[in-house]
Design a binder for these strands. Sequence first.
DNA 1: ATACGATCTCTAGTGGCTAGAGGTTCAAGA
DNA 2: TCTTGAACCTCTAGCCACTAGAGATCGTAT
Lengths: 138, 138
Amino acid sequence: MFSIGELSKRTKVKIPTIRYYEGMGLLAAPERTTGNQRRYDAAGLERLSFIKHARDLGFSIDAISALIELQDHPDRSCQAATAIAAGQLLDVRAKIKRLRTLEKELVRMSKGCDGDGVSQDCYVLASLADHDLCAHEH
Amino acid sequence: MFSIGELSKRTKVKIPTIRYYEGMGLLAAPERTTGNQRRYDAAGLERLSFIKHARDLGFSIDAISALIELQDHPDRSCQAATAIAAGQLLDVRAKIKRLRTLEKELVRMSKGCDGDGVSQDCYVLASLADHDLCAHEH
DNA sequence: ATACGATCTCTAGTGGCTAGAGGTTCAAGA
DNA sequence: TCTTGAACCTCTAGCCACTAGAGATCGTAT
Ligand SMILES: [Zn+2]
Ligand SMILES: [Zn+2]
Ligand SMILES: [Zn+2]
Ligand SMILES: [Zn+2]
């Protein structure tokens, strides 16, 4: 049995975030001391670690709720879990694609100006003012 | 002189967003009709296009404010503008890097399970429960 | 017994919008 | 000129996933 501070240290999830997860219904409300302080056990630690890991991988709270629901029913088909992971992968890939386009434009802009001129002649500002200077859609 | 709806159509910025930008002080308050409706001119269109383009490239509102400030003073050094663009590029690259790591882990997870089993044996769920299965930090 | 860090609840703020309620104005057609 | 209906107005609240702070209480070590 350990305190919320201890749980926070072990999982590297901030205390207010732990309480927030509890309020959301993502993390079960733990036991309390007579003085109303939260006391966690190994199960709580495990669950919060799961949540943390999934959040770090970019899964939404809703997705994590669904994953936890599955975890709580070991005999159910895991099809939904793989679907969620596949969706997350698509999401990440879409984000990468978009960011790579942005990267190219930003490189072009940065190359276009040394920063030793005056704002009126700045290629960065001109580029932002005129999308036609861009090489790609974004 | 055109209405907010027209401005919205031309810039593809939604009407509430335009009003939000005005409230933020990002976009100057335009003239009004006697009936209190906003009427924009070419300058307003140009400025909103600038903002839209910068937002599409991922610049924060604060960064855009600084860029606009520079644009309004054509004789100032553009050093700050290039610094902001360079910072944005670093930001984008950091995001790409992180997402590429996530992508690898998600691919590994997805490969690990066909979705035809039971949640108890699911590699996706096992992977989320145990970061030690991950190939990289993230 | 006392001190002091940790915890409690509650509210409000972050960024960048987005949605809705309830009321007013504009512009085109009859 | 009148009427209709789309577009506009302001204001408040909601979204996601937290984060920060106020002010009060608790737990533990000396
Ligand atoms: Zn420049
Ligand atoms: Zn562009
Ligand atoms: Zn599976
Ligand atoms: Zn991991």
